[in-house]
């Protein structure tokens, strides 16, 4: 039998101080689901970077999480401006964030690279002026090859 848990978070784009609340709550849920600490950490960091991205670039959005026996799937969707150049955005160090955001400790150009690094699979669907959907999957067990 496959157990599956669904979680939905609405991420406000208005308040930078509260950015990360969804990720904190998500991390606590994973603990309850007996996910291993290392996997929790990877998934939480990926989610947190995604949440920050949605707050600083896209006026907030939603995070839909599905946890089953094998995977943690995180779908981050926003109605923001879209990512103009995904290839560039994936480069470590590349950022379009303002100086104001950098003063807050983000905009180092590590958000998307970190999300890719900590997830096992990541896809980005983005349309200029319409929004972006990032899907990340973190496996609960390392793959045996």
């Amino acid at each position: 039998m496959t157990n599956s848990t669904e979680l939905l978070y609405v991420i406000s784009g208005e308040d930078f101080a509260s950015a990360g609340e969804a990720s904190t709550s998500f991390k606590n849920e994973l603990k309850k689901l007996n996910v291993s600490p290392e996997v929790i950490r990877r998934a939480s960091i990926a989610m947190y970077e995604g949440e920050i991205n949605m707050v600083i670039h896209a006026y907030g959005g939603t995070a839909r999480v599905t946890v089953d026996d094998k995977d943690i799937k995180i779908v981050l969707a926003d109605n923001g401006p879209g990512i103009e150049d995904v290839e560039k955005a994936m480069q470590a160090g590349y950022s379009t964030a303002t100086d104001g955001i950098r003063d807050l400790g983000f905009g180092a150009g590590m958000g998307l690279p970190n999300m890719k690094k900590y997830s096992d699979e990541m896809t980005i669907e983005t349309h200029e002026g319409e929004g972006t959907t990032v899907t990340m999957i973190v496996h609960r067990e390392p793959e045996v090859s």
């Binding site: 990360g20 400790g105 150009g109």
Partner: peptide
Amino acid sequence: MSDVLAFVKDQAVLLTGLCNAQ
């Protein structure tokens, strides 16, 4: 913080001059 998030170590100390909730 994104630089911090890039390098995970166990039982770590974080030194920072940034002073906010993040």
